[in-house]
């Protein structure tokens, strides 16, 4: 526990120095949950704000689990700011091949225009400032 606490305190101070921005006009609330085994188990990250995205579940959980957040890829040396940057990067560039929302992924790949339209509509509806 001591390890976890020390780490979290240190990293929290780091995050505050680098606020996230550039969410294309929307404000998306994220929920970051750190397990007691942190940093040896990955944190879980979920969107509290509904988002139209192939990698985020379209339900009340808004969970995402891919890349560095997966149990078998998680590095204890990764930091929370890297996790947040990863989420931010995912907003800019979805990974449709590793999707949890098959429909949105297909639309993203095959009909980008429609995807952008839908994403904008959702952002306007759910993620207004």
């Amino acid at each position: 526990m001591a390890t976890a606490q020390k780490r979290i305190t240190k990293e929290y101070a780091d995050i505050q120095k680098k606020p996230l921005d550039g969410m294309r006009g929307g404000v998306f609330n994220l929920h970051l949950s750190l397990p007691t085994e942190y940093p040896f188990k990955p944190p879980t990250l979920s969107f509290k704000t509904k988002i139209y995205h192939p990698n985020v579940t379209n339900d009340d959980k808004g969970s995402m689990c891919l890349g560095m957040l997966r149990a078998d890829e998680w590095k204890p040396s990764s930091k929370i700011d890297a996790v947040l940057c990863f989420a931010q990067g995912l907003l800019l560039e979805p990974q449709p091949d590793d999707a949890v929302e098959g429909g949105i992924a297909r639309e993203y790949k095959e009909n980008k225009k429609e995807f952008v339209k839908n994403a904008k509509a959702w952002t306007k509806q759910y993620a207004k400032k």
Partner: peptide
């Protein structure tokens, strides 16, 4: 041994059911 599963909810596109991941 831990069994992990990542799954996608079922989705429909134009009436066609996509298999979950």
């Amino acid at each position: 041994i831990l069994i992990t599963a990542r799954s996608g909810a079922m989705a429909t596109v134009g009436g066609e059911v996509c298999s979950p991941v």
